[in-house]
Design a protein around this nucleic acid. Structure first.
Lengths: 153, 153
DNA sequence: TAGATCCTTGGAGTGCGCTCCAGGCAAGCG
DNA sequence: CGCTTGCCTGGAGCGCACTCCAAGGATCTA
């Protein structure tokens, strides 16, 4: 049995990525398809993330195949969270560059994360505004439904 | 003075669309560029919405120019809210078709709105999860910043 | 050792939501 | 009358985030 690269990960589980099959640190070596299964991303996307500079250096086997570590999975989990906020990939690449550049970029990372936090708060507020509109419309249609029902009675 | 079609509406106001310049019902006739200014959409986008079936029928002047009404502005406001939820345009078109089809589609509209409401709740929950991750990272960098400061002292 | 499956690469293709262009009509102004 | 500005149309183009392809090498199972 294999994990094909075109698996539609939306249809087989209701919850998010499984994250359950991690190996203990020290013998944490995952192939690309294992990481795909663990994260819900496709292998294509994982290679693409690497090409655009969104990943740290990924280990290779003696024949050149990628071998991901638990640390890489942690990074991908963060990327997944940032992706949910709607942050553009280019901004995540910027953050990845700061991480690669070393400890002297702490302040800049801090600022970037704080700005992102503000964005997330704003988006939550937007969504709650939308929820209010939706609830008004929904109760309108619920009332209309009741009116139709009593008409039929 | 004119409203150009390429105005970047994100840079001139912090709040959302102005929505302030409405004319009273009865003499509510707006040109496409007025609606663009009012909604923050471009005239291009307004025409495109019409082409794909996202708009109701829009009145025309005797020379064929679009004349939007307050009702159209209300619809665009709803569309704007739905867009914030990440709802695909195709789904909004579906909703628009139900509205055009008449009162007998109330039940289906109700279901569609309820499903959208669930999506919005799920997205809010996702964002709050992301916020938690972000806050942990931010406090890590804040601590690191304090450590560096005391080191310098 | 054969055959199936998995992994590699650079580059091309896809779907979405706009975004813009060319060419032309219409209205207001000096 | 000419000039500027705004609006019209169909269709092409763009940016993003993937998504896939072709050709070939690596690894696993019987």
């Amino acid at each position: 049995m294999t994990v094909t690269e075109t698996t539609d990960t939306r249809t087989d589980t209701c919850a998010g990525p499984p994250q359950g099959e991690r190996r203990p640190d020290g013998k944490d070596k995952y192939t690309i398809s294992e990481v795909a299964a663990l994260t819900g991303l496709t292998a294509h996307t994982l290679r693409w993330y690497e090409r655009i500079g969104l990943m740290p250096h990924i280990d290779r086997s003696h024949t050149g195949q990628r071998r991901y570590t638990n640390r890489d999975l942690d990074w991908l989990a963060l990327v997944g969270k940032l992706r949910l906020t709607g942050m553009p990939v280019a901004d995540m690449v910027r953050y990845a560059e700061l991480v690669r550049a070393g400890d002297h970029t702490y302040a800049e990372r801090f600022e970037l994360l704080k700005a992102t936090r503000e964005d997330v708060l704003a988006r939550i507020a937007e969504l709650q505004g939308t929820l209010a509109v939706l609830d008004r419309k929904i109760s309108f249609y619920a009332d209309a439904g009741r009116a139709l029902a009593s008409e039929r009675a």
